[in-house]
């Protein structure tokens, strides 16, 4: 397994601590003139987004995290298992519901998404920034009400619910921003 010495430490390094993948988001070199070097690092957990502060002494090492992002396609869901396919190798990867996290709300069969592989194993996926979903159920839209500040819950084809303007009707297509989970616009077929 490759490892990084403190002299390689820099922002953007992907490392492994206690088996988890972290991104180095800050690295401060501290050294009294005649003393040994210290590296005060801030690391972000690549999946949980939690932040960890760690100090290392010059000469310490951290294991490199082999993190690869691939382009993939969502194939299907079987209970709590989500199956994807690598667009290049056609290899199939499975993610659990926990790993997919909020992603299930957006996943339609055949959808393009990116996947993160950690030491060759899939650990997370990311849908496109915007997805178009079909409204499966909602209260009927109030005719003539085009205001976007009056919202109502809308259930889409994936089974997820989003807050949408009151004028949205069943059977219509809506665009959602997957980074915020917010409604963007109505889409014509």
């Amino acid at each position: 397994m490759a490892s990084y010495n403190t002299s390689d430490f820099r922002k953007g390094l992907k490392v492994q601590i206690d088996g988890d993948p972290y991104l180095m988001i800050e690295c401060n070199f501290v050294k009294p003139g005649k003393g040994n070097a210290l590296y005060k690092c801030r690391l972000r957990h690549l999946l949980r987004n939690t932040v960890l502060d760690r100090t290392y002494k010059g000469g310490d090492t951290l294991e490199a995290a082999d993190i690869v992002e691939i382009e993939a396609q969502f194939l299907y869901r079987q209970g709590e298992t989500f199956v994807f396919m690598d667009n290049e190798s056609y290899e199939q990867y499975e993610l659990s519901g926990d790993q997919v996290d909020d992603g299930w709300k957006y996943l339609k069969e055949g959808m393009a998404c990116s996947m993160m592989l950690f030491n060759g194993n899939p650990i997370a996926m990311s849908p496109p920034n915007h997805v178009v979903l079909k409204v499966e159920y909602c209260e009927p839209g109030a005719k003539g009400n085009t205001a976007t500040n009056v919202t109502k819950p809308v259930k889409v084809e994936t089974g997820a619910e989003f807050q949408c303007p009151a004028f949205i009707n069943q059977g219509e297509l809506i665009k959602i921003d997957t980074r915020t989970g917010e409604y963007v616009e109505r889409v014509k077929e």
Binding site: V30, K31, P32, G35, N36, L38, T55, K57
Partner: peptide, 11 residues
């Protein structure tokens, strides 16, 4: 001891 002194000094 010097390493510990350095750590406390720096931090």
């Amino acid at each position: 001891k010097d390493s510990w002194l350095n750590l406390l000094m720096a931090m």
